[in-house]
Each structure stands twice: as C-alpha cells, then as structure tokens.
Design a protein around this nucleic acid. Structure first.
Lengths: 197, 197
DNA sequence: CGCCGAGTTGAACTGAATCAAGAAACGTGG
DNA sequence: CCACGTTTCTTGATTCAGTTCAACTCGGCG
C-alpha cells in the first residue's frame, strides 16, 4: 500500500483526505504463477496495482498467441478497453510469476470520482500514459528491426530475460520464437567478440 | 457546425445548454492544400473538427518521413500528445486537400470542462477511441502482411487512393513506395483475373 | 519544350517465416 | 529425489516478402 502512495506522490500532489478515500477501497489479493486473472470475453471490473510479481496481456488464439504487453511491479494496470466501457475484454490477463495485487472495483472507483478532486485527473493521466506508450510502440513496429526492438527492450528492462519465456517475448516483438533465438545468438556473439578484444 | 452537432448526437445525448456553451467557442478556419497546420516542435492549441478536407499526421525526418495517420471529414482530431500536456508536438500536421476546420482553443475547452457536464465525458470518449484505434493498428502491424494491411485500408476507406499520394500510404502501411507499387500491381492482377473468369 | 517529382518495373540481396529435428529445462508422479 | 514426458529453446535448410539501387515512364508545370 505504501508503494501505491509513493507512486502517486512521484507523479502529483494528493491530499490526505483524497488518499484516505481512495485507499479505503483497495483490496489485496494474491495469485500463483501462470494464473489467468481475466479471461478474454469477461469484463474487467478492477483497476489494479502490482505490489509484487509480473503480468502479461495477450490475445489467446489457437495458433499464434499474441502478447501485447508485460506489466511490472509498482505499476497500475487494467484491461482498459473493457474497464472503461464495461464491455467484454479482447485481452486475456495472466500472471507470469506469483503476484500480489491491490485493486479497486469499478463501482468503488466511480465513488472516488464523485467524492474526490483527484479522480478525473488520475483517469486522464492513465489514458495519456497509455496513449503515449502505444504511440511509441507503433513507431518502433514501423521503423525498427526485430533485433533493435529486442535490444531496446532489454536495455529498458533487463529483468525480462530472467522471468519471461522467450516465446512470449518473441510474440511481443513481433517475430517467431526461432527468429528471436537467432537474434539472441547474434547478440551474444557480438558481446563475446567485444569482451575478447 | 451542423455536422458537429450530428457527430455528438450520434454518440451521446448533449443538452441544448451544453451545446450552446461548447459551440459558442468554436471558430471556423480554412487552409489550402499541402498546408502545414502544426509544425513538429510547436504546441497544439486546438481541438479541431474537419468539416471538409483531409489531414495527415507525420513525423518529419530527413530520410524516411513517417506517416502516422490520416483524418477524414466529419471527425475530430488534435495532436493529442501535445494538446493534453501542452508540450511540443512530436507530430506534424498537414492538409492533403483544401480543408475547412471548426476548432476550439485549449483554454476555451477548459472553460467548457468547468461549465458543462459533458466536458469530461467528451474527453474520456476521445481517449478511449484513440486508444482502441491504436490497439487495432498495433495488432495489424504485428500480424498482418503489408498486402493485407493495404487491402483492409482500401476496404475501409476506398477514397484513399484518389486523394492520397502513394508514398504517404506506403509509409503509413510500413513499406517502401516501391513495395506498395508492387502490391498494387499484384492486387490489380488478381481482380482482373477474377473479372475475366 | 524540357524538367522534375511520382510511380512503376527489374535484379540482387537480406531478414524473417516455415518446416524439421535435436538439445535443454521443467514439472509431475512414483 | 530421480525418471520420464512435455514443453521450450536452439540450429539448419529452404522459401518468401520486402529493401535497396537503378533505370525508365508519365503527367504537370514553369
């Protein structure tokens, strides 16, 4: 819970009163590894904060499963397309590690919107952040090679390799697992070469 | 102006009073073809509605210019990344045809937010729509071939061919103009074959 | 008329997909 | 805690879509 407070404070000023209203509606919940938190087709009822663990968004399909994003500790997430509209979600949400969440129910959040100054601001912040992230990804998909996308991902989040199976990373980057395996091999070769010289 | 009213009414109920407040702050403005409305690096001050014409968003670069999206008549647009944060825009915005806009200034929109019920709702709607569009495009960039992306674009917006130079379409789809030219040739062949049989 | 940018077409090349098979890692039951 | 079977990862060979470089056509405009 302290982590959430910190998250807010790093981003904007929140009054003691508003914080109390908001935090009183948060509930903690734990999930094991590889647990489906939200099934595609179900409606997302929660806005959640990851205290510990790791989460994957994907579109389940017979053949190629498509990984859209990974969410790490100390971040909020929600299947926003579904949460905002309260319609069935396109995405499925799953843990990739044992995970502890704090979450607030849609209805409770509406209360917060009514009772506090900060509600709408948080909402706008969230959609702005999302939009900018998506734009960045769009750019990268348009112009970067798969190798560059992988390299950048690792530079940003080195912990990815340790926790996330290659096949999910591959589908996130937009290549086959085989291709990503080769990309890895190429990069390893380069960095060995650098060490040896 | 009637078109804007219609746009709203198709999407949600707006009271006469709210409409009057909103519409009183709209101003009409015209631009010729190939006119840069917003330079990359400048701040976007307007939320605009296209009454007539066609607009392109892109990132200007020495070599490869990157087209992000086209906006058609009867739609709102803004360089949202810049408009929302009132920071310099990454995108440049340009007309592809003689264009008539109705637009509202950022400061006036803030007034509308304060004075009307509908303000926040409109804001949220806009970001939702944007987010969903981006998600769809992300999916398409990840899994579809360039040919499929082109075919779908045409199916959705047949008027594209007539008005938009191939090189812009190519960069939107994420291929070189040469590649798109070949894709076109392939598709034409197929449809001729179909006609002949 | 001649020029220039946009579009087309060809040839060589390249990054990634696909098909296939083997190696490594992982979890589950005995 | 080991043994087995299943998934995940790697590696090779072939194919394919798209890039790059280059030459040529076409339509508009000074």
């Amino acid at each position: 819970m302290l982590q959430i407070r910190k998250y807010f404070e790093e981003r904007f000023a929140i009054s003691e009163e508003d914080w109390n209203i908001f935090s009183s509606k948060l509930h903690q919940i734990e999930f094991p590894k590889n647990h489906v938190i939200l099934k595609a087709g179900d409606t997302e009822h929660y806005l959640s904060f990851i205290e510990k663990g790791l989460i994957r968004f994907y579109i389940p399909q017979e053949e190629k499963e498509l990984t859209f994003t990974f969410i790490f500790e100390n971040n909020f997430y929600s299947a926003y397309d579904s949460f905002l509209t309260q319609q069935p979600s396109v995405y499925q949400v799953e843990t990739l590690a044992p995970t502890i969440l704090w979450r607030i129910h849609y209805n409770d959040l509406q209360e917060v919107y009514k009772e506090t100054q900060i509600g709408n601001f948080i909402g706008r912040m969230a959609s702005e952040e999302l939009f900018l992230k998506k734009s960045k990804r769009e750019l990268s998909l348009l112009v970067d090679s798969a190798e560059k996308r992988y390299a950048e991902l690792l530079a940003e989040k080195p912990e990815l390799i340790q926790h996330i199976p290659l096949k999910y990373l591959a589908s996130y980057i937009g290549v086959t697992p085989q291709a990503l395996s080769r990309i890895r091999a190429r990069i390893a070769k380069k960095s060995n070469w650098r060490k040896a010289h």
